[in-house]
Design a binder for these strands. Structure first.
Lengths: 313, 313
DNA sequence: GCAATCCTTGCTCATGTGAGCATGATAGTT
DNA sequence: AACTATCATGCTCACATGAGCAAGGATTGC
């Protein structure tokens, strides 16, 4: 971006730039039309870019913030990164928007023979609401119901089950039991075992991310945890959870609750080729970073402000 | 501009488009980086343009409306067309802006060995005020002073004369005489004759355009004209004047006043290779179109609203 | 006046790119 | 299951383009 050229030169450059970029003519055609040499045309086009007369505006027709998406992808080595350009109003609007975009993303990523794995969570509820059809036939619930309210926890699977041709593999159980033995008992149940057997076949997983510090997690609220549990886990540096996998800032996985959880294990999760997280909002930034650091995800759907903070950190 | 692609595809396209257009990488480089074939990259770039993810924005760093300039140029077969993007506020602000841009244009167009010809007029006064230096050595006044006020009519030459290294060839006379004999007498004056002798050497002319219908012309006001003159000329369909050349809507030149005028003749004017008109504002549209139709100009500086009306007509 | 310098211009040749085609996959239909 | 239409993919070959260079012209300094 140097000195602006004189007005006539600007007009000439603009003419050539329009012919080349907008009308798609070749430099040689333009040269013939204008009587210039093709080299001259090329240099004027260079000048058009340098002087800022042509600018390349790269923007999404929908509300995807492309620049942030690309940077996020490269920064955290993701295969799929989608940043939704929305103001961080309320948590609810963020979740709605992320849910809708995650639904779009699924429609794009999924193939017929994929097997989809889902966790519960409010963003995923929003996603389920936006889904009108699903290309794949099997949907596997990856974790028991996290929050205190069974009703909303089951909504994801309930909605997905209503779609044409979908075979659901639900988990009618809470995410956490109060002791290992109870969990073992639940896992032995035939219907739950059936679902667990699907974990290894899942090819695409979509999961919510819970934040323990600051607190924004349905798992944290789970009634099977007592205060001692929560304190102990926090003391071990846990800041985030995905499915029932607990993660610290440095990306280490804490296995404290493994034996008590009704969910896909860390190992099983990592075996899934495509693992997309859907989370956003200011309370989730630290948790998302932790989960990304742990390399638990291959994709992320988030909002623009969160993306910026992830990139800044 | 078809269906927007899915979010991930958008991100991929955005990435590729950024690499190609903004960072200037080749398709082959991008193909190697991303693992795609160069054809795939090419098709994604096509899609980027089609879907509107990349847009080519062509805009002036100064306030030149490039699109209109180009269209004006092509529509009227001009070599130089500059449309200044200003709201049509008062006549004065339009004249100021046109003057400043015309000065820029001169700085660009003029070479050392050019000989500049000027008429008088308010837009040209504004131009003279904006001129800080002039690359050429000889400036020739092409027409006597048009308006009733000698003072302002001479301002253009006065200002230009003050610039470094400029040799002025002024005409200290009114544009029109009351009869042919008086005009003949004036033309015989040695100093005026000297200036007239320069006409054939002038290479670049800048002229104001006067409008007779609607009325916005200093020439029309000239005291050497009586009401009968004015009526007769209007009856012959004259709508515009440049220097002392009268033009009708259809672009015909009316020679009614030739013998009485102290100015470059139509023939002499047409012999000048570069002839730039500077005029704008709603009252001048019809006059400008007439002068353009007469092919009296090779260039035009005007405002955006006037340009739009010229193109619309 | 002359040389040194810079800038502009258009060239060559290696490289990048587009049009059109053949191939293989996919989806819908009989 | 076979057939057809459609689409995506990657090829060839002709064409468009970029990097670097050499010639000409202008500018500057002595």
């Amino acid at each position: 971006m140097t000195e602006p050229p004189g007005p006539m030169r600007q007009v000439q450059i603009a003419h050539i730039a329009t012919e080349y970029y907008v009308h798609g003519k070749t430099r040689i055609e333009i040269a013939e039309q204008t009587g210039l040499s093709r080299f001259k045309v090329g240099r004027l086009l260079d000048e058009a870019v340098e002087s800022g007369i042509v600018r390349f505006e790269i923007s999404s027709p929908s509300n995807v913030s492309l620049d942030l998406s690309v940077r996020l992808r490269e920064r955290f080595g993701l295969d799929h990164a989608v940043v939704v350009a929305i103001p961080t109003d309320s948590e609810v609007t963020v979740q709605e928007a992320l849910g809708a975009t995650t639904a779009d993303l699924l429609g794009e990523v999924l193939a017929d023979d994929d097997i989809l794995g889902l966790t519960s969570g409010r963003t995923l509820n929003a996603m389920a609401r936006s889904l009108t059809s699903l290309r794949c036939h099997n949907v596997v619930q990856l974790a028991g119901v996290a929050g205190p309210i069974q009703q909303s926890g089951l909504e994801v699977m309930r909605r997905v089950s209503m779609l044409d041709g979908v075979r659901p593999w639900p988990i009618y159980a809470s995410l956490l039991m109060s002791d290992a033995q109870a969990a073992e008992g639940v896992r032995r149940q035939p219907d739950i075992r059936q679902t667990f057997d699907q974990f290894s076949r899942v090819t695409v997983a979509v999961g919510a991310i819970g934040s323990w510090v600051p607190r924004n997690s349905l798992m944290y609220e789970n009634r099977a945890l007592n205060d001692a549990d929560r304190r102990r886990i926090l003391d071990r540096g846990v800041v985030a959870e995905i499915a029932a996998t607990l993660v610290t800032d440095s990306g280490e996985v804490v296995h404290d609750l493994d034996s008590r959880s009704i969910a896909v294990s860390e190992k099983q999760l990592r075996a899934i080729p495509t693992r997309i997280g859907a989370a956003g909002g200011p309370t989730k930034v630290r948790a998302i970073r932790a989960v990304l650091t742990a390399k638990l995800l291959t994709g992320l759907v988030t909002d623009s402000e969160t993306a910026q903070q992830l990139l800044a950190g």
